[in-house]
Write a protein that binds this DNA or RNA. Structure first.
Lengths: 154, 154
DNA sequence: CTTGCTGCAAAAGATTTGCACGTGC
DNA sequence: GCACGTGCAAATCTTTTGCAGCAAG
């Protein structure tokens, strides 16, 4: 079932490209697959490495191009995380909160109705048309890193 | 009163540096003043330009250094905004939402109790120790840009 | 065929760094 | 006087771009 879900995700991305009139290339197939199957929130470098395993001659520029195309089509979103060198991408395009550990840089998703409440309030009070691609990021220390730092000292 | 507020803000930043045992230099004074007086959310380039008006020989590296020092001390926070080339800084270190216009790149602050509610819920459900330096960013279209796009077409 | 896509390599551009000099304390 | 801060310029590093050749439709 997990595998089935991944396949659906890959195909969903490919369908979005197809419906936008984009050509179906082997590179794009591999990139979509890599995005769909990547656990978590890959960077372009992550995807480049993954795809290169099967497609050694692929260029970074192609990965950047495809990822950017998918982003324009709303299939994925950019996660801009302070102090991370690379830009992460998120396949979950529903507005949600990303919680980032300051130490291990782990990213955890949090879905909560509060996000919608927040968007509603922001729309009402600011007059902005809020787009769904919310960049809601909270920074903190994850349970593991908290434990480790407690064990060692301070 | 507005001027008085700015002065206080400048001095607050200087005091933070002083209390951290940092040396009091003319460059840092000008940078703190530029940050305190800047309307909105300056980038390093903004601050560099502002300071250079009074201090022509200052180097960009010094601005980067000082801004980074202030950030480490918690006096300002970084705003990572998708698709903006420069990193913006925010002198408001209370957790709040930044609403960013996709067109004119205007940034508007929104203070609401929902942020605290959200942080509480995130702490409880994720087990993370959430830090106050929340990067809560919502993207949208500001009233002005909305009006302009309506007037012109579509 | 025609146009978009890819690969390559170089460019761009923000931020960081190394080092020597100057300056606060 | 000592160590930190500054200035300068070069380095770094991610992302973007120009262009020629290739391939999808």
């Amino acid at each position: 079932m997990a595998q089935e879900k991944k396949d659906n995700k890959t195909e969903a991305l490919l369908r979005i490209l197809e419906e936008a009139g984009k050509r179906n290339t082997a590179q794009r197939y591999e990139i979509c697959k890599a995005i769909a199957e990547y656990p978590g929130h890959p960077t372009v470098a992550d995807l480049y490495d993954t795809v290169r395993a099967r497609f050694p001659m692929i260029s970074q520029a192609t990965v950047y191009n495809t990822v950017d195309t998918l982003r324009e089509l709303g299939a994925i979103t950019r996660l801009e995380i302070a102090n991370h060198d690379h830009t992460h991408y998120d396949t979950d395009v529903h507005p949600h909160v990303n919680i980032v550990c300051r130490y291990c840089e782990r990213i955890q998703d949090l879905h909560t109705d509060l996000v919608h409440t927040l968007i509603d309030e922001a729309s009402r009070t600011s007059g902005f048309d809020i787009r769904p691609e919310a960049g809601l990021i909270l920074y903190g220390i994850c349970p593991d890193c908290k434990k480790n730092s407690t064990e060692t000292e301070e």
